[in-house]
Every structure is written in C-alpha cells, then in structure tokens.
Design a protein around this nucleic acid. Structure first.
Lengths: 126, 126
DNA sequence: GCTTGACTTCGAGTGCGCTCCAACTGCGAG
DNA sequence: CTCGCAGTTGGAGCGCACTCGAAGTCAAGC
C-alpha cells in the first residue's frame, strides 16, 4: 500500500467522480497531484482537505471561476489572507441571501399547497 | 391601450427576459398567448399569475422538465389535483433539504473564515 | 413619408460544469 | 501467463437553461 490515495479513493471520499477530480486539477483547483512510479495520481491529505472546502464552496453555489481565484490567492502566499477572507465573507453573504430567497419563494409555493389541500378537503366532504 | 400586457411589460414584471418568456411558451410552460391584430402577444392576468408561481419554482431549483409536468397536469383538468399537490409537496421537501444543506455547508466555510480572522488578528498584534 | 423602437419567427449559439470515449499502461489474482 | 481492473491522456460531447442574430412587420411621433 502506497502513501496517499488513488483517484478512485478520493472520488469515493468526496462524492466527486474521478473525471471531475482530474478536471479540477486541470483547471487549477488542485495543485498537480504527485504520481507513483507508474504515473498514477497519489492524493495527499492536504489535497483531500482542500477538496473538503472546495466541495462546500461548489455546493453553496460558488462558480468554479471564483474558486479558482481563491486557490490562486492560496498559492500566492500568506500575505493576501485578508483578500481571501473578504472573498469568503462575500460568499457567505451570498449564501445567506440565497437561503432567505429560498425561504421567501418557498412561502409562495406553500400557499399553493395550502390551496390544493383546501380543494381536496372540500371534495372529501361531498 | 389594449388589454393585457406586452412581452416587454411581462419581462419587466417577472424579471425574466422577453427571450425567456417566448421560450417558456414554446416549451409548454405557458399556454399559447393570445395575439393582437398585429400578431403581438398580449399576456392575460392569469398568464402573469402563472409566471409568478413558475418563477418561484425555478428559483427554488425545480428543473424546467418537472415544471412542464406540473403544467401538463394543470391543463389536464381538476381531477388530478392530488397528483399536483404531491408534486408540490415533494418539491417542498427538496427545497427544505436544500436549505439545510446550504446551512451545513456554510458552517464549514464559516470555520474557515474564523480561522482567517484568527491569523489576521495575530498579525495585528505584532 | 421617414425614422424609431418594440415586436415577430426560426434556428443557431453560449456558458457552465461536468462526463465520456478511445487507446493505452501496469498490477495483482488465479 | 493471462485476465480483469483501475488507472493514464487529449479531446470531444452533453444537458441545461437560456440568449441571441437576422430579417422582417407594424404603429406612433416628428
């Protein structure tokens, strides 16, 4: 057993497909993954940890482009932490707005549901 | 001033583009919109009301395909109200899960934000 | 009467985020 | 030694939801 994880293992861990993992590397979301003697990827713990954050960013609707911007900051060194923080805080705000819009829109659908329940109850009493 | 609304007016009202409104009609989300003597669409109140619901469905992530399914039920008559209700209730559940996943994922991002704030505070004290 | 602007149609094009194909390589089990 | 499986590459393809281009029609204002 070698060090690190194969692309398949990481796919299983993260819920991403192997295709997607290779593509993430290609577009610059992951640093080049080290290879074993046969040229196969061995993901390190830090690669998987980064994926943990990346998948959360994606799942909350951050565009891949913006995730790439964030990773470029990470790669550029620690001096830009404030900028990274701002990016994350801005995303946080976006997600909070997203949630409240979902709640607001759901309320409209809920009213429709209530209406249908009313119709069906009325039929019932016939 | 004629009865009803032009495509541009409805676009302004709903936030959809005129392109999208025509496309919605084409894919069957809207019944054929009546035309004035020059062939221009005049949306009725009930068309706009339907769009109110449709935009909420879209905004909460319902795929267009499924919205079409719902509208087909509406067109088929009142006898399938139970089925429509079930469709809406299922969507409601989906949206609720969506919201809680957003909250869960945001928590991970929040932890990262807290970490960055810590770094920056530490720098500050130098 | 001419221009402007909003509308019409049809089909093609776009952006995003994957997703897959074909051809190939290397490893472990039987 | 062979089989099957998991991996490799580059580039093509896909599904979704729009979005737009081109060419034309009509009505109102100057």
């Amino acid at each position: 057993m070698e060090e690190g994880f194969s692309v398949g293992e990481v796919a299983a861990k993260t819920g991403l497909t192997a295709y997607t993992l290779r593509w993430y590397e290609q577009v610059g979301l992951l640093d080049p993954i080290p290879r074993d003697h046969a040229g196969r990827r061995r993901y390190r713990l830090r690669d998987v940890e980064r994926l943990d954050l990346l998948t959360k960013m994606r799942a909350t609707g951050m565009p891949v482009r913006e995730m790439v911007r964030y990773i470029e900051l990470v790669r550029a060194g620690t001096h830009n932490r404030r900028e990274r923080l701002e990016l994350l805080e801005q995303h946080r705000t976006t997600v909070l707005r997203q949630i409240s819009e979902l709640e607001r829109d759901l309320a409209v659908i809920d009213r429709k549901i209530t209406r249908y329940r009313g119709y069906l109850d009325a039929e019932q009493t016939d």
